[in-house]
């Protein structure tokens, strides 16, 4: 039984009355603990694919199963909870909430789950130390550098120990050295916590270093 199965997923956009088929009958299985890279030309539909995987976007047709449960058959509250517990996101930009401190941002998924405050903050602090930001807990996102913010975002994605981590060009905005730090963190997380991770990247060497490599082209996902 695969952790996450994508079955026959279609997704199209409509621009100026024309249909753009971004995903065409994509089917794929992801096993528990896999570390997967996804490459493809810009505009191939990598982000779209990741959004569908993460239930952020609804497919036009097809289904996504998590542990044999049809994800899109759940109601809104269940999907939200699924997203909250099972999936961690890291995007190209950090997308931290500007009104909250780094600590609060990291603890946010736990707070959404209505976990008790003190415990959530304690664990968030631990995670921030782990990503090397023990000195920045009370900074607002505006007061962090790009690399720091991205590490906070990674800590946020991991705070509830999700089963799946989806990273959409997490180092796209960073200089190579900082990016390499993030990549190392991703690998560690995958190894230590057994989190299934899908990393979209343009970095060919990084992609090749991953155990499983996928390529998105022409609306189809193939093993590369």
């Amino acid at each position: 039984m695969a952790l996450l199965s994508i079955r026959n997923v279609f997704k199209s956009y409509f621009l100026h009355g024309k249909r753009i088929d971004v995903l065409r009958a994509v089917s794929l299985d992801l096993e528990k603990g896999e570390l997967v890279s996804l490459v493809g030309a810009s505009g191939a539909g990598k982000s779209t694919f990741l959004h569908v995987l993460g239930t952020l976007d609804a497919p036009a047709a097809g289904e996504v199963f998590f542990e044999d449960r049809s994800v899109f058959s759940m109601n809104d509250a269940e999907i939200a909870e699924f997203r909250n517990r099972t999936i961690g996101f890291v995007f190209q930009s950090h997308y931290l909430l500007p009104e909250f401190t780094a600590l609060e941002n990291v603890a946010m998924p736990a707070l959404i789950q209505r976990r008790e405050r003190a415990g959530a903050y304690a664990y968030a602090r631990e995670l921030l130390e782990r990503v090397g930001l023990g000195q920045r807990v009370d900074h607002r996102p505006g007061e962090l550098s790009g690399g720091e913010a991205q590490r906070v975002a990674l800590a946020r994605a991991l705070v509830l120990k999700p089963a799946i981590l989806l990273a959409d060009e997490p180092t796209g905005n960073l200089d190579p050295a900082t990016g390499e730090g993030i990549h190392q963190l991703l690998r560690d997380v995958n190894r230590e916590l057994g989190i299934t991770a899908v990393v979209v990247t343009h970095n060919e060497t990084l992609a090749r270093s991953m155990p499983r490599r996928l390529r998105l082209a022409g609306g189809q996902v193939t093993e590369a």
Binding site: L56, D76, E81, L96, P109
Partner: peptide, 16 residues
């Protein structure tokens, strides 16, 4: 808008 999207991605439901 952006924050709403992020909150949703983090698992806040529409009702939330």
């Amino acid at each position: 808008r952006k924050e709403i999207s992020v909150l949703k991605a983090l698992g806040v439901s529409d009702g939330g």
